[in-house]
Nucleic acid binder design. Sequence first.
DNA 1: CTGATGTTTCGATCAGGATCGAAGCATGAA
DNA 2: TTCATGCTTCGATCCTGATCGAAACATCAG
Lengths: 226, 226
Amino acid sequence: MKDGPDIALTAALIGDPARANILSALMSGKALTARELSDEAGITAQTASSHLRKLLEGGLIAATAQGRHRYFTLSGAEAARLIEALMGFAAARGQLRHRTGPRDPALRAARLCYNHLAGEAGVQLYESLIARGHLMLAPDGPALTGAGTAFLHTMGIAPEGLRRKPLCRACLDWSERRSHLAGPVGQALLTRMQEMGWITRIGDSRALRFTPTGRAAFDHAFPPPG
Amino acid sequence: MKDGPDIALTAALIGDPARANILSALMSGKALTARELSDEAGITAQTASSHLRKLLEGGLIAATAQGRHRYFTLSGAEAARLIEALMGFAAARGQLRHRTGPRDPALRAARLCYNHLAGEAGVQLYESLIARGHLMLAPDGPALTGAGTAFLHTMGIAPEGLRRKPLCRACLDWSERRSHLAGPVGQALLTRMQEMGWITRIGDSRALRFTPTGRAAFDHAFPPPG
DNA sequence: CTGATGTTTCGATCAGGATCGAAGCATGAA
DNA sequence: TTCATGCTTCGATCCTGATCGAAACATCAG
């Protein structure tokens, strides 16, 4: 009956409480898994899967397959601005919700992601390797350079002995929003750092702790770029 | 489960197709009646009434009672910006709708509103009267000044003979977004201008047409301010 | 006053979609 | 390979909310 864009489709997508919770959680900029999002929204994994599919079709979010996980983020700046406009309007009308406790800061600093280093330290390692030319970003993922291979030898790692298909993989970080290094090389680096006593595990949680000397050695080996 | 504003309420409000149509129609900035909005949305008046109540409660639109009409507008810049963000997102995703024929431009230029002059000419008359001090804006509506009374006499109108309670009323314009003059004085002015041959009616529609000499006389009597 | 028009309320119907249990599929660990 | 975990699909249930007919209410014209 009217011209102009159809705003009902997108608005109805955001209008469901479960989906709105999912989008609000993604407004932190973090990449979250389907399970984490279902917890945030207070629904089961099946229901979340259905909602995530709809949000994908509506172009509001984007997904990245990552092993047996699937990481979801907002689709881009356009979507973020839209949610932000909605939040601004709702906040001006005094429509607020309850809040929950904050996340564990130790997990954000350094943690185990499967078998490699994640968190702020993981991002620092990854970006340092790229900035110093040890890692190159190819279309199909990061790849070790000659300088990178030599560097690994100085760390006591022989990349030639590693098997599995892609030696390096970029892994979306859970707390940061950027990538860190996964794959056999990432695994070998963490194992080596544990052998050298740089890093220890906190209990049986996923949190990792640097020893004082380990932290200094880590910052020397992987200086943060810039 | 989460902190932050509750965006689902507002988004669900916009998410219904009928309500989205109403909001899209109001994005023109015009003030529209409930019936006009129900036509735009393709629903009956009863259904539109229900939707309009919800939009009012949600703070997206505002209403102004006007005799037996109720004029609706977007509630303000905040709401307009929100709809605009939605339209931008939907347009980028290529979600468009069909379009209908354009409105009659003659209706926008000058038309009958009950018994007084509306459209661009109506707004010109109203604002000219105010700019020249013939009309004063009081809290309870516009009021005739002494100069205004004298001016009406030169037009051949005796406001002392007019009865009904508020001699002047501001009437939200349908095509323009501003007010024009209603009430007995507005009615008398239009009647007089028709008597003097300034204005004729086009068929039995609501559209009015100025005669060439009438247009000149009108612009002389009610020069647009500024 | 009476009649006409614009709007709202009431009541009932009905469909779309949110939800979850159970099962199926894919990936990674051992 | 086998097992565990993350995610998706299928199927069925159930409830919110959109819709409209009829009637009530308010305003204006005559």
